[in-house]
Simulated scan of single mutants.
Amino acid sequence: MTLHLPSSSRARTRPARRRLLAAAVPVALAAGLLGGCASTSTPSDQPATGTQTPSPWPSDVTPSATPTDTFTRDADGKVTGISYPGEDGETALDLLLGVDPTAKVQGKGANAFVVGIGGRTADDAKHEFWSLEVDGKQAKVGAGTLKTKDGETITWTLATY
């Protein structure tokens, strides 16, 4: 039996699916590593032949980020930004949490304020903050309020004031 949801219901499930997939990836990787520890050795009088190069992802798991989700980093490898595509009706915040479930947010909904992305928290002592742009223009509303559209590029950049 197939359940058909109205398009607005389907759109609301996208971030939840991404968060679920993002949570499932570490579990699947751990299971794959543990499964690889099982003894499949050849008898000691038989030489081992060939080498295996492990895949970064199990064959039945794909990463939650799409190829257009891009972290930017400074020379030290620290995250300085991220870009991802907008989706009709989804908020910039829900999409951010879908591509970076570790993002740190203070407050909820319209009052949500992003303080950390990619493991990097904005440093108040350095007057840093996470700036939100849509198609290269500063957002006029917060991430929890900003409804995105297909074809837009959402960009967060670590900025100073």
Rank of each mutant, 00 (worst) to 15 (best):
T155L: 03
R18W: 09
G36V: 02
A30T: 07
G142V: 03
G98H: 11
G86P: 00
G136C: 08
T102L: 10
G86D: 04
T91H: 03
G35M: 10
C37Q: 14
F113L: 15
S83G: 04
V61K: 03
V25T: 11
T157Y: 01
A23N: 13
K126W: 00
A38H: 12
L21H: 10
G35Q: 10
A159C: 07
A48R: 14
P15W: 01
G151R: 03
A28K: 03
S83I: 04
A24V: 07
R120H: 06
L93N: 01
K78D: 08
Q46P: 05
A110H: 06
E133A: 11
G98P: 01
P54S: 11
D94K: 05
E152H: 09
G151N: 05
H127A: 14
A22D: 06
E87W: 07
A103K: 07
T80Y: 04
P101H: 09
A112M: 08
R73Q: 08
L33G: 10
L97R: 15
D60V: 07
V61G: 06
L34T: 10
G35S: 14
L95D: 00
T148V: 00
W156V: 04
G119L: 03
A122N: 05
A122T: 05
A143K: 03
G144N: 05
E90V: 11
T155D: 02
S64Q: 15
A24F: 07
E128W: 04
G107M: 12
K149H: 04
P58N: 06
D123Q: 07
G35T: 13
P101T: 10
V141Y: 08
D60M: 12
A48K: 13
G116C: 03
A65L: 13
K137N: 12
I117Y: 02
A92F: 02
F113D: 12
S55F: 09
D88K: 13
E90T: 11
I154E: 04
L97Q: 14
P54A: 12
F129Q: 06
T155R: 03
G144Y: 04
C37L: 15
L93Y: 08
L132K: 09
T155M: 02
A28P: 00
Y84G: 05
S131K: 14
D69Q: 08
S55A: 15
V27S: 06
F113P: 01
W57C: 06
A23H: 14
T72F: 06
G32E: 11
I154M: 01
L29P: 00
S59M: 09
G89S: 07
A143D: 04
K137E: 15
Q106E: 15
I154A: 03
S64T: 11
L132H: 02
A31S: 12
P56N: 13
V115F: 02
G151C: 01
P43D: 14
K108I: 09
H127P: 01
A65C: 10
A31H: 01
K140I: 09
V25G: 00
P54T: 11
S64V: 10
E133R: 12
F113M: 09
H127M: 08
P54L: 13
V27L: 02
W130Y: 08
L132V: 06
W156S: 02
A112P: 06
A75V: 11
T153D: 00
F71R: 05
G50I: 12
A24L: 15
D60K: 08
T42N: 12
G144F: 04
L20Q: 12
T42V: 14
